[in-house]
Design a protein around this nucleic acid. Structure first.
Lengths: 186, 186
DNA sequence: ATTCGCAAAACGAACGCTCGTTTCGCGCTG
DNA sequence: CAGCGCGAAACGAGCGTTCGTTTTGCGAAT
């Protein structure tokens, strides 16, 4: 995962991976049928974790679309900031896979996207959100999370919890959603 | 550029590039000292175009921080949507370069980032913006542009000009900036 | 107007090396 | 003793690059 994230799939050799595992290259083929299957497993697991994390967050969020989108933004941000290497592999290196091996991961991804769109639609229908375009807005929400590994690392100046709060705030602003009455401002 | 964008630097061979140029692989070495120099030139030119486009937009924007950030968002979005292949190469494949060859591009990138941060700071100081964190907000503004190539392509349903307007709107919302009096809403 | 000279550009072949993968035999474990 | 995981070695293919040579295009000189 670390190699694929930093050097890319094609920039990583089977010998590189074997070396850090203190194995011979051939030993890897007892566990995976090919180098590409190693990547496809990583990508699939990454998307599964992402999807189940989002679903778990939604389950605890109640029925209010604002609470729901807050929960999603919180989970999305925390995940990308906590596992930046996996996030990079999942989001960038998936394109190195053949269509066949990428399909399971893409299916999960499409499912998660649909989840977000549903919440946006419901929030708009209920008059809680006001957005210029559903797909473009959902893509923007996704983007600010996906790009986290490219600039963020936890520090005293900006700890993880602070980043999460910031992204939740930015998300609500993009939706023109007002926090629940008990909530404060940043 | 198209090869580097779709297959990645390490996924593209010199023979691949030579073939689409209808040349022998060796002929490329009359123009570039190495494969890596081809990428570094692409990345450098990409960042130069990006930086000069932002600066040109700023030059025509006047002194109002709101107009300035609108101009930047407009230019940033339009550029990434118009040249998605170059955008991908610049933003993703730069990591395939050695530090030495990446340095010129990274310097330009840092300069553009500083430009955005200055405008954010001035807008905050003038009370026109209200943001939770300068760096995180600037990164978010950048992110929604950078991720455009991963989902957008022009269509009748969402033409380029509409995408630009949407991103400008989302940008203003993230900054809690109110459009100038003559401006309308989306 | 034609020829010459030269530098840039392209060719075709080859170099040394690394790639992903396979084979095979050994030794440990259940 | 059956089976699996691993090491050692090797496979063919493809990699980026270099080499010596040939072709090309164009300004200067006849």
């Amino acid at each position: 995962m670390r190699f694929f994230a930093s050097e890319g799939f094609h920039g990583t050799s089977v010998r590189d991976m074997a070396k850090v595992l203190e194995l011979q290259p051939s030993a890897l083929y007892s566990h995976f049928p090919s180098k590409e299957h190693i990547l496809s497993e990583l990508v699939r697991v990454g998307y599964e974790v992402h999807a189940s994390t989002l679903q778990a967050a939604l389950r605890d969020a109640g029925d209010d679309p604002i609470d729901q989108i807050c929960a999603l933004a919180r989970a999305h941000t925390r995940l990308h900031a906590t596992y930046p290497h996996l996030a990079v592999v999942v989001n960038e290196e998936i394109f190195a896979l053949t269509a066949e091996l990428a399909a399971p991961a893409l299916a999960i991804r499409a499912q998660s996207m649909a989840l977000v769109l549903q919440i946006l639609e419901r929030g708009v229908a209920m008059g809680r959100f006001s957005i210029p375009d559903k797909v473009a807005t959902a893509s923007a929400l996704s983007a600010i999370g996906v790009r986290i590994p490219s600039w963020y690392e936890p520090s005293e100046a900006l700890p993880l919890d602070a980043l999460v709060d910031i992204h939740v705030e930015l998300t609500l602003r993009m939706l023109r959603a007002e926090r629940s009455p008990r909530g404060g401002s940043v």
